[in-house]
């Protein structure tokens, strides 16, 4: 697709309108699920960029937590504006990814995954022991203001939801456009053949570094939104390793075919988790793990591949010329 207004554009636009309208009708707990989906979906979007390049991070909770704590700390110095907070969280993680990227761009496969894990656990180890930042209890995050106005009660979540939905919409479009750009196409080049990429005149390491920074920015954004939505940041629910596992979980659940799929996958993840937790608190992890296993075994390309199966059935599959 070369046109800017392609299927994904319309899909995302319709999605935005639907959830903006729904926002005013939803009950607060559903709205909260929506917020969490957008936050985790953004991180999974970052992982999608890496995944397409053949790289998987087992430690993106690092950037998620870093962005979340950046918001919490920026409030301590008096920055209460939501947009400003989100920008600070996003940039903070982007900078961290830029710095670590100089190292990580040299690693592939399991080493890349585990080095990310190590860095995320370092941050966890620091945060869990740092008294100033509340150790394992974490720190509270106040309701933010929006250009000088601080909404109260239910309006607080409604506003945050609208606000986040609009930013996520823009971010998703940007990522979609990025993936169809020359730089985005290098994800495939990195995954398939680094030697050829080098001999086409571009550095595979540089391409990976750029992707890593993008994924860091997205994870930081997700963390910032999560901090504002939950009103609290702490190491165990944001930085500890199972969080990183959850992000990869969403990426697999969604499939890496389309940016819109990532948010649908994130929503599915949050819904399964919430319902499992509410209705079967004894076995919610069993249900989560079971779902993931079913996906891995029977839908290796994620939920999105269901739409492709349907699409293929409509058009009879063209046979390759050979």
């Amino acid at each position: 697709m070369t046109r800017f207004m392609d299927k994904t554009f319309w899909g995302l636009t319709i999605g935005l309108v639907v959830i903006l309208v729904a926002n005013f009708l939803l009950e607060d707990w559903l709205r909260f699920i929506g917020l969490q989906s957008m936050a985790r979906g953004a991180v999974a979007l970052g992982l999608l960029i890496l995944w397409r390049a053949g790289l998987v991070s087992f430690g993106h909770a690092l950037f998620f937590g870093w962005g979340a704590y950046a918001v919490a700390l920026s409030q301590k110095i008096g920055i209460t504006d939501a947009l400003l907070g989100i920008i600070i969280g996003t940039i903070a993680s982007g900078l961290l990814a830029f710095a670590l990227g100089f190292l990580l761009r040299r690693y592939r496969a399991i080493f890349f995954a585990l080095l990310n894990l190590a860095f995320s656990m370092i941050l966890y180890g620091v945060l869990a022991k740092l008294e100033v930042l509340g150790s394992t209890d974490g720190i509270g995050v106040k309701q933010p203001s929006y250009f000088g106005i601080t909404p109260e009660g239910a309006n607080a979540h409604i506003t945050l939801f609208c606000f986040t939905a609009i930013i996520v919409y823009i971010v998703a479009l940007a990522v979609h456009r990025y993936l169809s750009s020359t730089l985005g196409a290098m994800t495939i080049a990195v995954r398939e053949n680094e030697i050829r990429l080098e001999y086409l005149g571009y550095s595979a390491e540089k391409a990976i570094h750029v992707k890593y920074v993008f994924s860091g920015l997205l994870a930081g954004f997700g963390g910032a939104v999560m901090a504002l939505a939950v009103g609290h940041v702490d190491p165990d629910s944001m930085v500890y390793w199972p969080n990183s596992g959850d992000f990869v979980f969403i990426t697999i659940l969604s499939g890496t075919g389309n940016v819109a799929a990532t948010f649908i996958g994130a929503l599915a993840f949050e819904l399964i988790r919430t319902f499992a937790f509410d209705y079967a608190p004894q076995i919610w992890q069993l249900l989560m793990g079971g779902t993931l296993l079913v996906i891995v075994m029977f839908l290796p390309n994620g939920l999105w591949s269901l739409t492709e199966h349907l699409g293929k059935r409509r058009k009879s599959a063209p046979s390759p010329a050979e």
């Binding site: 087992f58 596992g245 979980f249 069993l286 793990g289 079971g290 993931l292 296993l293 891995v296």
Partner: peptide, 30 residues
């Protein structure tokens, strides 16, 4: 589980064991 996954990408295998780990956490509680 694993014997069905040896031919798959190493990341997928790790994730499958992560899924099994999550499930087993609850089996313990059960």
């Amino acid at each position: 589980l694993l014997r069905y996954l040896y031919h798959r990408d190493e990341h997928i295998v790790v994730l499958a064991t992560f899924a099994a780990f999550l499930a087993l956490e609850d089996v313990i509680i059960l």
